[in-house]
């Protein structure tokens, strides 16, 4: 049985879009659920790469702090993400590309039509004050 990606995607969602005084984070907005559905559907071809990325981040987190990625807290998670995306990063091309893809999908999950699982109750759209959503004739 393949292990669930859900906790990992939720951690990523909150690192990409942290909950703070400006408003809800990626997880509360539903971005992780959006990504989960994408990887189970139209982007299923990328599921293995995302699972490998999780393994990579879990291994790094254990090496430094003795716990998996999801359990090391936001500051440590940020450091691990930064390490992969840094210009002089040692990470392999595939890992960098997968992380970028995952960030990209997470952002989509903040602002896509709620029918795709993210942007719960249009919480993402409401953060972009001034945008008139959902779309309708005016």
């Amino acid at each position: 049985m393949e292990k669930s990606l859900r906790p990992f995607l939720e951690s990523i969602a909150d690192r990409v879009f942290p909950p703070d005084e400006l408003g809800p984070g990626g997880c509360d907005i539903g971005a992780a659920e959006y990504v989960r559905r994408r990887l189970a559907g139209p982007r299923s071809a990328d599921r293995l790469a995302v699972a490998a990325l999780q393994d990579h981040l879990d291994a790094s987190a254990r090496e430094h702090w003795g716990a998996p990625f999801c359990d090391v807290g936001a500051p440590h998670q940020e450091r691990l993400i930064e390490a992969i995306l840094a210009d002089d990063a040692q990470a392999d091309v595939e890992t960098v590309a997968t992380l970028r893809l995952l960030i990209d999908m997470t952002v989509e999950g903040l602002f896509a039509d709620p029918g795709h699982g993210g942007n719960r109750n249009e919480a993402g759209w409401r953060l972009l004050a001034g945008m008139a959503y959902p779309p309708r004739a005016r």
Partner: peptide, 21 residues
């Protein structure tokens, strides 16, 4: 909205607190 969220200046990170702000 998604295009707005992905079209930012090159010096702004694409994730995290600075991105959101």
């Amino acid at each position: 909205p998604i295009r707005a969220a992905k079209t930012l200046p090159p010096w702004i990170p694409r994730w995290g607190r600075e991105y959101k702000k």
